[in-house]
Design a binder for these strands. Structure first.
Lengths: 120, 120
DNA sequence: AATTTATGAAACCTTTTGGTTTTATTATTA
DNA sequence: TAATAATAAAACCAAAAGGTTTCATAAATT
C-alpha cells in the first residue's frame, strides 16, 4: 500500500487553519507562498500545516520548477463522512434509530433492556 | 442561545478516545465509571474527555442519585457532515466538480485559467 | 555570475493536551 | 452512623502542537 497516513484525518481537519487551507486548495492549486498570503502567520508555520495535511493524504504537492504546487486530494475525507453517517441514525427522530436497531439481529434485546431501565 | 459550544466539534472528535466514548454512548447511556472500564486510562482522564465532549455539546449528563448518566447528543455532528459534503464535489469524478463550477457564475474564468496553467 | 525568489530545514519557545495522583464531597447501604 | 461507592476538583507533569527566527539550498532573472 502506497498510502501511509501517519497523521489521522480527524486530527488533520481539527485545526481551523488547516481547514481553511483545504478550502483554498479546493478553489485552485497553489504554491505555499500564495497560500501563506491568506494567513497572519509565517510561511514556515503554514508549511508545517501543509506537512500535516500531506501526512494525512489530504493534499499532494508536486514540484514545478522552483515552486511546489499543492493540490487537494479529498478522498480520505470519505472516512469522516462514513464515521458521521453512523451517527445520523441517532439524530432528530427516534424512528430511524429504531429502524437501525431492527435491521440488525440480536439488538432487540438491547432495546428491551433500555426500556426496562427507563421504567424502573 | 442556550448552545454555547466553547469547544469546536472538529477538535472534539479529533481524539480517538473521545470517538470511542461517543460510540459507547451510542449503544447505551452510561455513567462515567462504566465508560472508564473500557479504557486503559484513569477515570479522571476519561472525565476530562467527557468534559470536552460536553463543551462541544456532543453529550449531555444528568445526575441520577449518586451517579451521573451520560447520553449521546449527536446533533453538532451535522456541522461536520456539511463540511465534508462540500468536498464530496471534488472526489472521484471530475464531472461533478465541473457541474459545481458551472453552477456558480464567475467561476468559468477560474476554469479557463486552470486549463491555461495545465497547457503551458 | 550575481541577485532574487521560492522553498526547506533546524533550533528554539510557549501553550495546550492528555495524562497522573491526591484530596474532597455526596449519596447509598450495612 | 459508619463504611462504601460514585463523582468532582485541584495540583502537577511530560509530550505534542503551533508558533517563531535563522540559516541553507535550488531555480529564475538580470
Amino acid at each position: 500500500m502506497t498510502e501511509a497516513a501517519r497523521h489521522d484525518v480527524f486530527q488533520a481537519i481539527a485545526d481551523p487553519t488547516r481547514r481553511k487551507l483545504l478550502q483554498l486548495l479546493s478553489e485552485e492549486e497553489m504554491p505555499i507562498n500564495a497560500l501563506a498570503a491568506h494567513f497572519p502567520i509565517s510561511r514556515t508555520a503554514v508549511a508545517k500545516h501543509l506537512a500535516i495535511l500531506s501526512d494525512a493524504n489530504l493534499i499532494t504537492g508536486k514540484k514545478a520548477g522552483r515552486e511546489k504546487r499543492f493540490a487537494l486530494h479529498p478522498e480520505p475525507l470519505l472516512e469522516v463522512k462514513e464515521w458521521v453517517a453512523y451517527y445520523e441514525r441517532f439524530w432528530d427522530n427516534k424512528l430511524s434509530m429504531l429502524k437501525h436497531l431492527v435491521e440488525k439481529d440480536g439488538e432487540i434485546e438491547g432495546l428491551k433492556e433500555a426500556e426496562k431501565r427507563k421504567t424502573t
